[in-house]
Design a protein around this nucleic acid. Sequence first.
DNA 1: CCGTATTCCTAAATCGTTTTAGCAAAAAAG
DNA 2: CTTTTTTGCTAAAACGATTTAGGAATACGG
Lengths: 343, 343
Amino acid sequence: MKPIRPSIKDIAAHLNVSVTTVSFVLNGKGPEMRISEEVIQKILGYAREINYRPNQLAQSLRTGKTNVIVFMVEDISNPFFARLARIIEVIAYQKGYKVIFCSNENDDRHTGELLQVFRDQQVTGYIIIPSAGAKKQIKALLQEGVPVILFDRYFPELETNYVVIDNENATYQATKHLIGNGYRKIGFVTIAASQTQMVDRLKGYKKAVKEAKLRSRVLELPFGEDASEGEEHMRKFFEANPDLDAVFFATNYLAQQGLLVMREHFPGKLHAWGIMSFDDNEFFRIHTPSISAVAQPLEEIGSKLMEIMLDLLKNEKKALHQVVLTARLQERDSSQQKDVKSL
Amino acid sequence: MKPIRPSIKDIAAHLNVSVTTVSFVLNGKGPEMRISEEVIQKILGYAREINYRPNQLAQSLRTGKTNVIVFMVEDISNPFFARLARIIEVIAYQKGYKVIFCSNENDDRHTGELLQVFRDQQVTGYIIIPSAGAKKQIKALLQEGVPVILFDRYFPELETNYVVIDNENATYQATKHLIGNGYRKIGFVTIAASQTQMVDRLKGYKKAVKEAKLRSRVLELPFGEDASEGEEHMRKFFEANPDLDAVFFATNYLAQQGLLVMREHFPGKLHAWGIMSFDDNEFFRIHTPSISAVAQPLEEIGSKLMEIMLDLLKNEKKALHQVVLTARLQERDSSQQKDVKSL
DNA sequence: CCGTATTCCTAAATCGTTTTAGCAAAAAAG
DNA sequence: CTTTTTTGCTAAAACGATTTAGGAATACGG
């Protein structure tokens, strides 16, 4: 019925050589082990002929390496992560690695549980967006000597590899862009989190606002709220600050919620306000007005992550890679000249 | 340095029993194998004490079961698939399965390559959106006796498990909804594909249009076009059909492209036309006007898929599961009364 | 012609499980 | 008191690879 896959043993038997020899040859150690060219060719030829492919389970069991990379994000259905996942996937498969995606829901316990599972799996490498309190778990992982790369955010106190973007500068520039276009009362909607990326974004906003001698107006949503609660908070915030003329959302889902609130409760402001979001999104182009955004360089992040991962996997002695990429400001309708817009 | 994980052998040694006994007990076969209650408790107790967890590689090598489920879609970064992935992920992890996601780009060769890789991995089950010409590969997979579930579309000639939605009826109803609201010149934008879901959607539209004695106006984009080509085609189509008063996009990315085209080239029509999309999207709510859509029951699809998968995995003798779910029409601004809107 | 190198290859252990076949002791049956 | 059955457990093979340690045959040096 099901065609039994040939094993190294079958090759050995068929060619009257030992399993050892076959293994050496197939792993390219033929010359090193002084297997004669003749035998090498014989083995390679036959292996190709019967389309031999090693049983990776057996290999992994023996070597302890599974060639599985875990890609852990907050929520794989978030378009930002999903697109990144796609990029990672392509590179990984090319290089012969498999990727397991998973969502930690930005929850420490969940992160821990997942990591536990993967440790049992003897996963080869980890690319992780850590939840706020996952420092301990990450530390434990590091101590095992497995390749770990954090991204989007990191723990400054931990000596880890990471790939992040220059959040502070990006928000700073984007805020300046709003200011430069005539907006003066710029609100900043973020979530109360101590994670580097959020802290830095807030910093960038505050810096720009302060430099321009404007008042900072920040709404910090409690961490872990659901969408409707967030929307309610935003509604109140907008209501309590009727003089706002622009708003900066610190993440794409905040922008999503915010736009909905504006649409439903403040339809007039949708076109009057300057709007800026962190993380670009295909729909920001389509929206009317189209929404300006700080666009993270997804391709670059993805390929950098994999480049580092491959390096860590290849080299026994592991270098420390800490990469900060710069984001690009995607200007669209919503952040253009205030005067023009309010016409 | 790294704490060696305890194996079944360690347990055996420590308790002065054989590996066999330990294995039996840990697999719940203690009673069946007449291991005394005393020994059973001793083993279970000690296993818990040292937090023993089996090496899954070894287990898989021995049993041939990897507990890995492949979830193959066109493009994991498509929000529809990404959200589904999230749902599948949750259920699978709960049940002790791992999920590998991958994108076949709706390309047969790519599908084949991926399946090849996974076959080598001895993946336990497959949930697949098959590319158009993947019938052969799917057939091969079926013949191996591995659990396979298709979804979103299927091959009628193949005796497979599948979960799909009633595409024809959904489009039919949605088109009728547009007609009921006063639209008479309804365009249908789809891609030229022979895959069941697209064929059925077109059928539903045609049926509704015919019943209402309206003219059918269909734009079939060539398969495999990129976004900008598609947009160009749509622009021409809209231009060539200036009398259109509504448009139905057969997938979410077509709607996305179409909205962009309308926004850039026919801004007036954005509010005048009736607009309907297949596959709902968070942003359709936010868009102005908000976009009506046929919403696929994601939760239901996801849990149905996993329910079937778990059944296939559990029962040796496999039943055939062919499930057709119904989609829900999400009415929004863009499909409301024509008269009201054109005010 | 003996000892040492070199060449080419292999036996066997190992990774951590599962599972088949069976053994020794105790209990039951005769 | 023997035979059979049952109880309670285990030895060892297997899954399919990698890797260590070493062996036989030939070549070489003196």
